[in-house]
Simulated scan of single mutants.
Amino acid sequence: MKTIKFLPLLLLFIVASCDTVKVYSDYDKSADFTQYKTYAFMKSGIDKVEISDLDKRRILNAIDQQLQTKGMTKSETPDLLINIFTKSREQVSVNQFNAGYGYGWGWGWNPYMYGGQTYVSSSTEGTLYIDLIDAKKKELIWQGEGTGTLTKDMDRKDEIINNIVTQILAQYPPVIAEKKK
């Protein structure tokens, strides 16, 4: 009976963990981020990204929305160049659940234990990198990275990509602590 109560909680945890995005960023501490007001996409770099053109468009549209929300505008003579690149890898999860009663010998074979289930699932974990490059100096000044579970569900792709991009760009511009005098 305890197993039946435990299973819905486990499934809820698995579903919730699928929408989790891990986000990191790094930046050049000497850069003055207040000077960057305009941006453009770096076509030569984006063309090399090995994902579908539809997903590229989804990512670039999400970046556009987030940067415009921050008061930035697209320009032919930008302060920032934006580049993206992606990585993906297959994740395989094996979960074993035992149910039963009895005595046993530690982690070894237990003749008094019965029941048990093994669940195997796989998913694709993707990482999106967003690079912001000073257009004049041609130097990377900020990089954001977001890792999450990808989907082939067409109804959720826009939502997932928007979520990842939003969480990455929430860290731009970096909060720079004032130097102590």
Rank of each mutant, 00 (worst) to 15 (best):
K2S: 06
K2Y: 05
K5I: 13
F6Q: 08
F6P: 05
L7Y: 13
P8F: 08
L10V: 14
L11K: 10
L12R: 10
F13N: 11
V15A: 15
V21Q: 03
K22Q: 12
V23T: 07
Y24F: 06
Y27D: 00
Y27N: 01
Y27L: 00
K29V: 02
T34K: 14
Y36R: 04
Y39R: 05
Y39S: 03
F41V: 07
M42A: 10
K43E: 11
I46D: 02
D47F: 06
S52E: 09
S52I: 05
R57V: 11
R58P: 09
N61Q: 11
N61W: 05
A62W: 01
Q65S: 12
Q65E: 14
M72E: 02
M72D: 01
K74Y: 01
D79C: 01
L80G: 00
F85L: 05
R89G: 14
V92D: 06
V92L: 09
V94T: 11
V94F: 04
N95Y: 14
A99R: 00
G100T: 08
Y101L: 14
G102M: 10
Y103E: 14
G106W: 08
G106A: 09
G108N: 10
W109R: 06
P111V: 10
P111L: 10
G115K: 06
G115D: 09
S121Q: 15
S121I: 15
S121R: 15
S122Y: 13
T124H: 13
L128Q: 02
L128F: 04
D131Q: 09
L132T: 03
A135Y: 04
K137R: 15
E139W: 09
I141V: 08
T147F: 04
G148D: 05
G148I: 03
T149M: 14
T149D: 08
L150M: 14
L150I: 07
M154T: 12
M154Q: 12
I161L: 09
I164T: 03
I168C: 00
L169Y: 00
A170S: 10
Q171G: 02
Q171S: 02
Y172S: 00
P173L: 03
K179R: 06
